[in-house]
């Protein structure tokens, strides 16, 4: 089945993450009729065209940025594509790019969603993000929301949401899963036991 939707709702980063290692053609269709086609194989873009072939990497990156901002639809059809010896753009270059200051509003988390610091992950951060992380680190070590961080640091909630999203993109923070991160071993055992007992009711 196809992967499709609207770029009003999805960021290109999300789409490429879902496509992952699949092979096929991703079509980005702008309302004005311009169609950008990306041939994808082995986690890379092997060919790109916009009425004519796009050959320069810089042009390809620019076009992806433009189409990502426009009101386009997307559709990925899986299938075999020609695989040249070398991809001309790796998907990871788009997905895991350095956390610059441009953030997709579509990706911003809810102000109250709690994020947790991934301590083991070492990553070079731009100065402003490094400064934010330094100030918020103790809160993020146990789980903190943009709303709380903004209050404690005296910054706007939206600014905190942007910073958290940038940190998330480089996997330095991740949304907490409270049932894993907050329950102790004994509480988890109690729940598991209860879950198993009542699960049998639904197996009948």
């Amino acid at each position: 089945m196809a992967i499709y939707g609207s770029l009003n709702e999805f960021s290109l980063r999300d789409i490429l993450t879902v496509i992952g290692g699949k092979s096929g053609v991703l079509t980005l269709d702008q309302q004005d009729g311009q169609i950008l086609r990306l041939h994808i194989a082995e986690s890379g873009v092997t060919r790109m065209s916009l009425e004519r072939p796009v050959q320069a990497r810089s042009e390809a990156i620019m076009l992806l940025r433009i189409f990502n901002q426009e009101r386009s639809t997307f559709r990925f059809e899986a299938g075999d594509v020609d695989v040249p010896r070398q991809s001309f753009l790796r998907l990871s270059e788009v997905i895991e790019s350095r956390p610059d200051t441009t953030i997709d509003e579509r990706d911003l988390p809810h102000p109250k969603t709690l994020f947790l610091l991934i301590k083991a992950r070492q990553v070079a951060l731009p100065p402003d993000l490094d400064e934010f992380l330094g100030a918020a680190e103790s809160m993020l070590a146990t789980g903190a929301s943009a709303e709380r961080i903004a209050r404690e640091l005296g910054i706007a909630v939206n600014q905190a949401r942007h910073h958290l999203q940038r940190l998330r993109q480089v996997k330095k923070v991740w949304p907490m899963q409270a049932h894993v991160d907050q329950l102790d071993h004994h509480q988890r055992q109690q729940r598991r036991s209860l879950g198993q007992r009542i699960a049998s009711f639904f197996a009948r």
């Binding site: 939707g5 709702e9 109250k112 949304p175 409270a178 049932h179 907050q182």
Partner: peptide, 22 residues
């Protein structure tokens, strides 16, 4: 309805980050 996925993800992350629910 893929255009609803982002909202579903936002709700999910909101709820499971704040409440210990599987």
């Amino acid at each position: 309805a893929p255009d609803e996925f982002p909202q579903a993800r936002r709700i999910l992350e909101y709820v499971v980050s704040r409440h210990p629910v599987e």
